[in-house]
Amino acid sequence: MTAPIPDLIPSERRVLELVRRHGAISRARLSPLAQVTPSTLTRVAGSLLTLGLVREGARHNDGRKGVPEQLLELDPQGAMTYGLSIGYNHLHLMALDFTGRIILDRVEPTRSDDPQVVVTHARSMLAAHRPVAERYARVLGLGIALPGAFTEGGRRRLPVPGIEQWGTLDITRQFAAISNLPIYHDNDANAAALAEALFNRDLSADGFAYVYLTNGVGGALVEGGRVRQGHNGNAGEFGMCFPRNRSRPSAEDFAIFLAEHGHGDGSTATLDSLAPPETLVDQWVERAGRQLARLLDTLIWVMDPAQFVIGGTLPLDVRRKLAAVLQDAPLESLENGLSRPAIHASSLNGPVALGAASLPLSQFLP
């Protein structure tokens, strides 16, 4: 890693994003998509080739006479990113090459809720995997994702039970002290939604609402491939609709419900190893589905999303049951002529760490 992070001009960013979105593509097709003249496209492509961000791939014959044109594609070695998901009891470090391919995926348990201990642990993880970065031209940054809503214009976090001490800290400053990389941070639900927008090809570019069911209930709103932030970074903070002192559609609530009926110890960490009776699962899903249906009704009125995506650490088969319930749930908005969005249970693996690693990339591209 020797090359600096380039300060791209708008036309270079636009062309780079189009190459990322479409894959290998000809200059003839790129020019109208980027809304630049062929001569400008030639200059921009030359600059990106020199920077090592794109490369020339296979030749393509579009049926016209002459020598087939070489396609442009992202150069995987052109850059990489790190992402760190800080969970209640673990750290998940992931790294992506410039095409978004996962090149590092490491989960380690944490034994402390002290932020300084966790930051030191993160530093040792980054140091242990530094040789990965040496194979790439540049590192675009380190993305950090952890639970919690924001305050003070997005600079601070509201305290979250289990990791309360993080609420008083400046996340950027904490991690800048252990790394010379640009630092980007967001909450876990926003990061997971960004991963869905970038890597889940089944989702609409027009926009979707995302609910993240884990120890708590989080969410995000995505439009045009970008996560809406709001003034403080709390757009889509659906968890506020489901207070902790009441039953709610979270993985933690599901674990407690099962434990009350003799299955498991109430911990979300053991959910995937349990085999509760189907009738018991359906009982919880029916109640949680009614709660999510009220949220979905509101989102249809306010956002009119093309899709509603259910993610999180709640087991996938349970989220699929919730999706089926929501697909048929009676909604007041539909009685007024509005349309039900398509309902999806996400199967994306490690979405928070994947989204965290995508934060530097999303800042680099338009």
Rank of each mutant, 00 (worst) to 15 (best):
E278I: 04
L258K: 04
A356F: 03
G57I: 00
S362C: 08
T50A: 12
I103L: 06
I183E: 05
P360Q: 04
A3E: 12
F175I: 11
S124P: 13
F199P: 11
N245D: 10
L314A: 11
R13N: 11
F238R: 05
S26E: 05
R201Y: 11
R156E: 13
A356Y: 06
S346E: 00
E260K: 13
A235H: 06
A195R: 03
R101T: 14
G148W: 15
L331S: 00
F150N: 03
A293G: 14
R340W: 01
D75K: 04
E69H: 02
I343Y: 05
K65L: 15
M1H: 14
V118T: 08
F257R: 15
L96H: 11
S346Y: 01
F238L: 14
S250N: 10
S358G: 05
G143E: 04
A127C: 04
V119Y: 12
S31Y: 00
L280K: 01
L84T: 07
N180G: 15
S267A: 14
R111K: 14
I144Y: 06
N200S: 12
P159D: 11
I5V: 08
G46I: 00
D253C: 13
K321W: 06
G337L: 06
G154Q: 02
V211M: 11
L49H: 05
T151W: 11
L126H: 01
H263L: 07
S39R: 10
G153I: 02
V285L: 07
L181Q: 09
T172M: 10
R319P: 00
